[in-house]
Design a protein around this nucleic acid. Structure first.
Lengths: 339, 339
DNA sequence: TTGTAAGCGTTATCAA
DNA sequence: TTGATAACGCTTACAA
């Protein structure tokens, strides 16, 4: 058994509560006893037992992270590591811990969430996605636990705190970027449209081309499910069109890599024969061949701000449910050329 | 305040200890009262408070994960997400939770570790790396907490439980693969040699070429620190040699992407003018252009087994410190050709 | 400024 | 098979 607050108290000839006060750096304590107790703590090698503290204070100082269904390729895109980095950075500052859901399937993840919340393991939760027919968010609302979602909630978004990019705006800007380069035939390649972000980006794309008085051809709107074969097929379809596109908006950088490979196999050169702008600005876009022009969604900031909001909310559960929009910025590299 | 064991006990007309027994599904309880209590728990919407349980049982059922210094590009290689997937999969089965260190720097990560261990937040730890001059592992040994490291420990490896690939063997096989294709001029591109894995792979490489009676030229051994510019420079150096290599062993897939781009800019075609075999078999190698032949280190298994070992160790701290080697397998794609 | 003592929600020991 | 009751290690009124 390790040294407890009582041991320290006995050794220092004070009451346990006094020791507790020096631990929490309470102002109601004299400098002198504070120093005395601190000395004894050091000598005895005392360390706070967080579980006991949690039980007594009814607060865990840990936030739970609800993963996207991890069987998807989600984990491999740069989103997960980077958002974790952002969340970590803030948690580290406020001395919060991070706890992850471990389930693979949606069902398991939901069960994990319930355990965390009802089992009082966390003070708040961050949901790493926003998707249709999701049970998690409604559950969190009902439970009353503080939470923030990364992405735009599909229900009751006015009552939910979220942090997101303005994805329709971002997609619009990306498309405009291509438009301004003189491209008129632009295709959009999205990902799983269960998720809100895909839909938002598609909408932005459509708005941008419509704003130019151009028609949006059905054939220009595609999806790739992180699968090279599927990617090839999509490119084949696109290039088989009567009027193949001269530029591409690709909603995810892993997909962009797939597209790049598919294009190259058809001997279509980027950016000479095809321009493309992608999302996320992960390392992948930096090291791809050619390096890709990309809209930086600032994933780290997304994580950082979500944790920031959550911790505010934990401290004041009655606070106004604000939402924060992280700006995106286009970083130009070598995958786009003027027509 | 939520429903406690006492509330349930009162409502069901039994003692709290009885309720506790039905929660833990104790055999010392009659079917009848078990059912009665369960009914009341359901009706009242009771849920176990894990913090209280932790305090009472002195066990947390959570494992801590010690990250590699996250400012490095480490998080972005596929290693992190995939190893987490593996650890999660096992934790989910045994109903364990995962807690992450949040620090950025080595110092912070060390501090996080101490907090987790001394603050009794975890039952055991998994160290995601093995590196020189590391303070964490010695600390863990001293603390007596169960832990396992992923990678081969550099000190006291007989006393430490670890799970790893046989990286020298794997690198040997990778090199042999190239050798068997008729290549004689093979270069090695590693990563940060602070980490044990880099060194092991380099050793395997050297052994393999020496075994063929070939000399290992200094100039054939390079390092890339996840930086495209540096990558270009390395390739320039390599190709500027009197006898430029015809094949490459690249120790990391993100680096492989950098190499691919650098090569392409010099108009060197893979696999026609240059063969390459890389490590890890992440999605990146699958979608690269061309798809890369790679030695699959089975990162998911690495994570899964490490968690498995750790949980065994937590259950029986006296157990023999075994170590497990996860086999690697070469998966052939289109980045190697015979000479 | 410090001490006393009652929680926090469980589990575990001992009796019954 | 069940019930009292004392831990587990900390915090926090309230009293002194």
């Amino acid at each position: 058994m390790s040294v407890t607050i009582k041991d320290v108290a006995a050794q220092a000839n004070v009451a346990p509560s006094t020791v507790s006060r020096v631990i929490s750096d309470s102002p109601l304590i004299s400098e002198k006893t504070k120093r005395k107790v601190q000395k004894v703590m050091d000598e005895m090698g005392y360390h706070l037992n967080y579980n006991a503290q949690m039980l007594a204070t009814q607060s865990t100082k840990t936030i739970g992270i609800i993963m996207k269904n991890s069987t998807s390729e989600f984990m491999h895109s740069s989103f997960f590591p980077e958002v974790i980095r952002g969340i970590s950075a803030l948690c580290s500052r406020y001395d919060f811990s991070i706890s992850l859901t471990t389930g693979e399937s949606e069902e398991e993840i939901f069960a994990d969430t319930v355990k965390m919340v009802r089992g009082k393991r966390v003070d708040g939760m961050i949901v790493l996605y926003s998707k249709k027919d999701d049970k998690v968010v409604p559950y969190l609302i009902e439970s009353g636990i503080p939470f923030v979602v990364i992405g735009k909630p599909l229900i009751q978004s006015s009552k939910i705190m979220f942090v997101d990019n303005d994805n329709v705006q971002a997609a619009k800007e990306a498309t405009d970027f291509l438009l301004n380069l003189g491209h008129k035939k632009i295709a959009f390649i999205g990902e799983d449209d269960q998720f809100e972000v895909s839909e938002a980006r598609l909408n932005g794309f459509i708005q941008a081309v419509k704003a130019q008085g151009l028609a949006v051809s059905e054939g220009y709107i595609k999806n790739i499910q992180f699968d090279p074969h599927h990617g090839k097929q999509v490119i084949t379809e696109l290039m088989g069109l009567a009027e193949p596109p001269t530029a591409l908006v690709v909603s995810d950088d892993l997909n962009a890599l797939i597209v790049l490979t598919a294009l190259s196999e058809k001997n279509i050169k980027v950016p000479d024969d095809m321009s493309m702008i992608v999302f996320n600005n992960s390392v992948i876009s930096k090291v791809a061949n050619p390096p890709l022009t990309t809209v930086d969604t600032q994933i780290f900031q997304l994580g950082y701000e979500s944790a920031n909001c959550l911790i505010e909310l934990v401290k004041d559960p009655q606070m106004f449910r604000k939402s924060v929009i992280i700006p995106t910025v286009i970083v130009e590299r070598n995958s786009c050329s003027a027509l």
